[in-house]
Design a protein around this nucleic acid. Structure first.
Lengths: 253, 253
DNA sequence: TAATTCCGTTGCATACTCTGCAATAGAAGT
DNA sequence: ACTTCTATTGCAGAGTATGCAACGGAATTA
C-alpha cells in the first residue's frame, strides 16, 4: 500500500464534502501541512483538485471527465437508459439502476421522481445489500453457494424497524425474490420510502444490474407500489433486450 | 511533486479510455509492473479502480461519487439547470454550460439535442478558449488587462479553416463579444458545427459561466442560428436571475 | 500606521517508503 | 504434460517523501 497515494486519495475524499483550506486538510488526515501542500500540487496538475481563491481547495474537473468516461464504458447503463427513462416518465417516480460491487450496491444511474418529495441518492453512491430492493435482486441472482457466502459476510445493521437483521431471514427472502423475479424493500433502508426492484439480464441470462422504483410512502401505500411491479418488470425486460437478452426467466449458466 | 501519486493519477487517466491489464499499464507509463500493481491496490481500496475479472482493471465507482458530489457543490450548475433544460426543450438543440479554468473551457453541464446528428462532447471535457463561443464569452468578461494576458497565453492552433489564429484578431473578436453580449463560433472549433453563447451572471454582475447552443450546419445555416440568439439570451438571463443576478448588462465591479 | 496573527510556501537533512529485480505461483493455451 | 503468459511476493538499495523550522505575505487588530 502506497502511503502517499493513500493520503492523497483520502484528501480527495475530504474535499468532496466541501472546499477546505490547507490547514483544515492537514488536521483532518493528521499530516503536516507541507506534505499536504505537495500532494495537493500534484493533484492539481492532474485537475483532481482546484484552488478556489487563495486559501481554499475544491475538487477539480478531472473527476467529471473520468466519471463520464467511465460511465460511457458501462454498457448496461447506456443500453438500459431508454427503458428507464420511459419507466420514469410513465410512473413519475424515482428510478435507479444499480449493480453489485464488493459486497455493496452501487447506483450507476438515476432518474428523479416528478414529485417534490424525493429520495436522497446520487449516482456513485453505495448502499447495503441486505435492506435494499436492488441489493436483494442482485444477490438473489448469484448461485446458491455464493449467495450464502455473501449473506454471511454482511453485518445486518438495522437501519429501520423493518430491516432484515439475520442471515437466515435474508436467505429466505432471497429465495422469495428469486422465485418471484422481483424484490421489495418495505421501508427497510429508510423510513418513509419503499422500493421494488427487478433484474436486467444480459445475453446469457446473467444479471447485469437491477432497476428499482423508489416511492415515498406518503405518495403510495404498499399495495399501490406493488401495483407498479408489472410496469417495472416490463421496463427491466425492455432494458434486458437492449443488453442482448433473448431467452426467458430462469437460468444460471 | 509526488512521484507515486503522479504515476497513480496517470494510471487512472490511462484506464479512462478502456479497461486494461497490469502489463499494458506498466508499459504505457514505463514503470515496472510490481510498482503498478501496488499503486492499483491502493487505488482499489479507495474504489478508484476496480478489478474486472482476473486480468483487467477499470475505473471504479468512487469517481462517480466524487464527481457528483463535486457537481452538487457547483451552485451555477444547479441554479442554471431549469433555464437550460427549457432552452434545450424549446430549441431541440444541444445546450452546454461551461466555465473558465486554467486557460481552458470546461463543460460543466450538457443537454443533448433532439436530432440524430449530435456534437460529441462530455461533461468534464476541456476545450480551447480561442475557437469556442463559450470561451469567447468567458474571456470577454475579464477586465482588459487580464483579457490581454490570457489572449497572449494561447497557442491558437487552427482546428478548422475559420479558426482565429492571432492575438490581435482574438482581442478584436472579444471586443465585439463584450459589446454585443453574445459570441459566435462559426465552425471555428469543429467543421460542420457552429455555436452561439451568452454569459450567466451572478449577484454582482460577474460572469459565472457561459451557456451555448451547438448546432450542426446541416440543420441550420448561420442566419438560422443567429435567429436563436434572443431565445439563448433569454435563457441565460433566466439562469442569471436564479444565480442572484439583479442588475442590467454591463459592469465589472 | 504599526503590530499581530494566521496561512501558505520553501530548503534541507533524515528516515522510511517506494521501487526494481528476480524468483514464485498460478492460469491459459498448445 | 509442457510452454508461455500474467499476477504476486520478498528483499535490499536508492531515492523520494516527510517533518521541521524559518520565511513571507495578507488580513486583522490596535
Amino acid at each position: 500500500m502506497s502511503q502517499s497515494l493513500d493520503r492523497a486519495l483520502t484528501l480527495v475524499a475530504c474535499l468532496a464534502r466541501e472546499p477546505k483550506t490547507l490547514d483544515q486538510l492537514a488536521g483532518e488526515i493528521g499530516v503536516h501541512k507541507s506534505t499536504v501542500l505537495r500532494l495537493l500540487r500534484t493533484l492539481e496538475t492532474h485537475h483532481f483538485v482546484h484552488r478556489e481563491g487563495a486559501r481554499h481547495y475544491r475538487l477539480g474537473t478531472a473527476l467529471f471527465d473520468l466519471a463520464n468516461q467511465s460511465l460511457e464504458q458501462r454498457d448496461v447503463r447506456r443500453s438500459a437508459e431508454p427503458a428507464l427513462a420511459g419507466l420514469n416518465e410513465r410512473t413519475g417516480h424515482t428510478v435507479h439502476l444499480a449493480s453489485y460491487e464488493d459486497g455493496e450496491v452501487v447506483y450507476i444511474d438515476k432518474f428523479e421522481g416528478h414529485h417534490s418529495v424525493r429520495m436522497y441518492s446520487r449516482v456513485g453512491k453505495r448502499a447495503p445489500l441486505h435492506c435494499t430492493a436492488v441489493g436483494k435482486v442482485l444477490v438473489a441472482s448469484f448461485p446458491p453457494r455464493r449467495r450464502e457466502e455473501v449473506a454471511e459476510g454482511l453485518g445486518y445493521p438495522a437501519l429501520t424497524a423493518g430491516t432484515i437483521t439475520g442471515v437466515r431471514d435474508y436467505l429466505a427472502e432471497l429465495d422469495r425474490v428469486a422465485e418471484r423475479g422481483y424484490a421489495v424493500d418495505n421501508a427497510e433502508h429508510e423510513d418513509f420510502i419503499h422500493c421494488v426492484a427487478a433484474p436486467v439480464r444480459g445475453a446469457r441470462g446473467e444479471v447485469l444490474a437491477a432497476v428499482s422504483l423508489s416511492v415515498p410512502r406518503v405518495l403510495l401505500d404498499l399495495d399501490g407500489l406493488l401495483a407498479l411491479v408489472p410496469e417495472l418488470r416490463k421496463a427491466a425486460e425492455e432494458a434486458s433486450v437492449r443488453c442482448g437478452w433473448t431467452g426467458h426467466e430462469k437460468g444460471n449458466p
